[in-house]
């Protein structure tokens, strides 16, 4: 390469480098100033926030209106009851799904696929609006019960898939070994396959419980007074947007404090099970 060409190239590179550096400086200036602005406003918010709003309504958030169950208590209660019943439904449908008899497996497949492909709100709307419109007796049942039924129907389908995967995760040799020692299919399922499958399923079930706790917030759409609704109702009374922001952040933190320990423990369990089994 000739000397002149090298010089020309160097000059071009130098020019380009200057432009790039200037651009980077500008960009970092913008970035830096916006970040400082953001933190400044955040600090202002933290120091000037009227924490009284949260403190005064704390009982409302945790227990709901006086004389009724509501707030965070209702959220956890609904989630726990739904999980328990959905677990039973899930085992039944999971076993049906695994069955080799088509008249057992087809309805299970239909139910699972249908529920898994629609949003939860749709299921909640089906349960909360359709039956009460049919007759006076059904109208008198509280919204929250329909909501629980919707959550069971929704979560049951997901748990059925977990159960199915759990059963499939137990090696085929276990079934063969128990069948060849004379146990019937049902006996082998109860004593050999399900205990092992259940152990493998625990982490997924805990995760499902976390989803369920988060999903109970959707009962806000049908006016059940659970945690999200209490927050929403309080923030609706406030004009100040700073207060609103704090309320929703508080709600997020509370949900996080409830859910994260469960998530963490399920992950720990998963690791333990992964190492324990081969």
């Amino acid at each position: 390469m000739s000397h002149a060409r090298t010089q020309k190239l160097t000059r071009i590179i130098l020019k380009a480098a200057t432009v790039v550096i200037l651009l980077l400086l500008l960009l970092s200036e913008i970035l830096f100033s916006s970040i400082t602005l953001f933190f400044k406003s955040m600090i202002t918010v933290i120091f000037t926030y009227p924490y009284g709003v949260i403190y005064n309504n704390l009982m409302f958030f945790l227990f709901g209106l006086r004389g009724k169950i509501g707030g965070l208590t209702l959220t956890i209660l609904v989630a726990a009851v739904s999980l328990l019943l959905a677990f039973i439904a899930g085992i039944i449908f999971g076993l049906m799904r695994n069955s080799r008899r088509w008249w057992l497996s087809y309805p299970a497949i239909g139910y699972i696929e249908l529920v898994r492909s629609v949003p939860l709100i749709l299921v909640i709307f089906w349960f909360c609006f359709f039956p009460p419109g049919l007759s006076e007796t059904l109208k008198s049942v509280g919204r929250v019960y329909y909501g629980i039924f919707a959550l069971i129907a929704f979560t049951g389908a997901y748990i059925a898939e977990i159960v199915r995967a759990g059963i499939l995760s137990v090696s085929k040799g276990q079934m063969e070994a128990s069948r060849s020692s004379g146990l019937t299919h049902t006996q082998a399922m109860i004593y050999i396959i399900l205990p092992q499958a259940l152990k493998n399923m625990i982490p997924s079930l805990v995760n499902q419980f976390v989803s369920l706790i988060k999903d109970t917030s959707l009962l806000w759409f049908v006016g059940v007074m659970e945690f999200t609704s209490t927050i929403f109702a309080t923030s609706n009374r406030e004009v100040n947007t700073t207060v609103t922001m704090g309320l929703y952040f508080f709600a997020a933190v509370v949900y996080f404090l409830v859910c994260y320990p469960l998530t963490a423990s399920s992950r720990k369990l998963e690791k333990k099970l992964g190492v324990g089994e081969r």
């Binding site: 406003s41 988060k214 917030s217 999200t228 947007t241 922001m245 997020a252 996080f256 859910c259 998530t263």
Partner: peptide
């Protein structure tokens, strides 16, 4: 990741829509 995954989407939607005004110019 942990904070976002362990909070309901509905709360997040409300937070961004109703609550971010004081943080922005």
């Amino acid at each position: 990741i942990e904070f976002i995954r362990n909070t309901p989407l509905l709360i997040q939607i409300f937070f961004w829509y109703f609550g971010t005004d004081p943080l922005l110019p």
